[in-house]
Design a protein around this nucleic acid. Structure first.
Length: 351
DNA sequence: TCTGGGGTCCTAGGACCC
DNA sequence: TCTGGGGTCCTAGGACCC
C-alpha cells in the first residue's frame, strides 16, 4: 500500500458493503508518494518518489489518498502520550519528537517502554525509540531498529555502533554533502571521524566542516527546545498543467490570489502578521526562483498580501512555462504584540 | 507522464549607517 | 588618484528535514 495524491482515488463503498481500493497504476498527476508500507518498499518504491514512477515498479499497490487532518489528529494524540510520560518534548515534525528524559528518576529503558506503551494505547500505533546522551545520537539510533524498536547508545558505543553507519544517516548530511564526501572517498561516519577539523573545514567550509567533525564523534550540545516562534508561513501549489503568463494570465492570477488568501487565513488563525512577503516560482525545467519584498508595516490581509505578491511577480522573467506558484510571509510578529506598540517614533541625537 | 508541500537555517553580496 | 571598520537589513538561492 502507498499513500499519494488526493480524494479522486479514495476507496469507494461497494454495494456489498466492502471497499473498493484504487491501484497505483490508476494514478494520474504530478504527486509523489507520501509514504509506502514495508511490503511496497520491497518493490523499490519509497516516500518522495514520483507516483508515476512508483506505478511502474508497483502497479498493483493499493493507493490511498493523503488525509492530513487524520494525521494531525493522531500526531496530537502521539505527542500528548509522550508528554504524559516525559514532559520536556520538542516537536520535530508530524511523527517525531525529542524528549529530554534526563530529569526523570527512572531507568531509561523503563522510560522507553512506558513511552511505547503510552503511544500504543493512545493511537494503536507502534514507534521506535532511540535512547542516547544527545539529540544527534538519539535520532541516529532511533533508526537502527525500525519499526517498534528500542535502541540505546552511550558514548562508548560510538566506534562500534555509529562509525560503521553510512554518513548520509546523520541528520544534516543530505544528498549534496554525501556526494561530496563520497567524491573524497568517505562513505561512513567513521571515515569522517578519521579526518581532522582542519581538513574538514578546508573541504566543507569552516562552519559545516567543524560541525561534521563534532557530529562524527557524537558530539551535540543542542538542548531540547519545547517552544519556538514560527519564522514563516507559506502556501504553494504545483499546477495540474504548466501555465504561461501569455496564454494563462487570468488563471495564474487566480491561483496567486487563492494562495494569498490561504496564507492570510493561516496568519490570522494563528495570530501573526508578516512584514516580508515573497513569491516562489518553479518553471517547466524545474528551475526555481524567489522574490520577496519587505514592507514598512507588517500585514495579514489577503488583499495586501496579493498586492505585495503582484509587486514581486513584476521582477521575475516570465518567458518559460510555470509549474509551481507559492506565497510566503516571513519576518513575522505577533498580531497582538504589534497592536500594543506605540505608533510614535522617538529619535534622540547626542550631537 | 519525473520530481509535493511546509518548514528551518546558512551564505553571500549590496545598500546603508555611524 | 586611493579606498577603514565595524554593524544591520534586505534579497536570492540553496541545503536539508519531515
Amino acid at each position: 500500500m502507498v499513500v499519494a495524491g488526493h480524494r479522486a482515488h479514495a476507496p469507494r463503498l461497494k454495494q456489498d458493503g466492502t471497499l473498493a481500493f484504487s491501484r497505483l497504476k490508476e494514478y494520474v498527476g504530478r504527486g509523489v508518494l507520501t509514504t509506502a508500507t514495508y511490503e511496497a518498499r520491497a518493490l523499490g518504491v519509497h516516500s518522495g518518489m514520483p507516483a508515476m514512477k512508483a506505478a511502474r515498479l508497483a502497479p498493483d499497490a493499493v493507493l490511498l489518498p493523503v488525509n492530513f487532518e487524520l494525521y494531525r489528529r493522531f500526531s496530537r494524540l502521539f505527542k500528548d502520550a509522550v508528554r504524559s510520560v516525559s514532559p520536556i518534548v520538542e516537536d520535530i515534525g508530524i511523527d517525531e519528537v525529542y524528549a529530554d528524559v534526563s530529569g526523570l528518576d527512572q531507568d531509561s529503558t523503563e522510560i522507553a517502554c512506558r513511552l511505547r506503551t503510552a503511544v500504543f494505547e493512545a493511537t494503536g500505533l507502534t514507534c521506535s525509540v532511540g535512547l542516547a546522551p544527545n539529540k544527534l545520537l538519539a535520532k541516529l539510533c532511533s533508526d537502527i531498529q525500525k519499526p517498534n524498536g528500542i535502541t540505546t547508545i552511550t558514548m562508548d558505543d560510538i566506534p562500534t555502533k555509529i562509525w560503521p553507519m553510512p554518513a548520509h544517516r546523520v541528520n544534516g548530511i543530505g544528498p549534496k554533502a554525501s556526494a561530496k564526501l563520497a567524491s573524497l572517498g568517505i562513505t561512513t561516519i567513521g571515515e569522517i571521524a578519521e579526518r581532522d577539523e582542519a581538513w574538514l573545514a578546508e573541504n566543507f567550509g569552516r562552519r559545516y566542516g567543524l560541525w561534521l567533525f563534532r557530529a562524527s564523534h557524537g558530539i551535540d550540545e543542542r538542548p531540547v527546545v519545547t517552544y519556538s516562534e514560527p519564522v514563516s508561513m507559506s502556501r504553494e501549489t504545483t499546477l495540474e498543467r504548466n501555465l504561461h503568463v501569455r496564454s494563462d494570465r487570468e488563471e495564474l492570477g487566480q491561483v496567486l490570489t487563492r494562495l494569498c488568501e490561504q496564507v492570510a487565513s493561516d496568519l490570522q488563525r494563528r495570530g501573526y502578521i508578516g512584514r516580508t512577503i515573497g513569491i516562489k516560482l518553479r518553471f517547466d525545467d524545474f528551475m526555481t526562483v524567489t522574490r520577496d519584498l519587505t514592507l514598512p508595516k507588517p500585514i495579514s490581509e489577503a488583499t495586501a498580501l496579493r498586492r505585495a505578491a503582484g509587486q514581486c511577480l513584476l521582477r521575475v522573467d516570465l518567458t518559460r512555462d510555470i509549474r509551481l506558484l507559492g506565497v510566503r510571509a516571513s519576518a513575522l510578529e505577533r498580531a497582538d504584540a504589534f497592536k500594543d506598540q506605540s505608533p510614535e517614533q522617538l529619535t534622540l541625537d547626542l550631537g
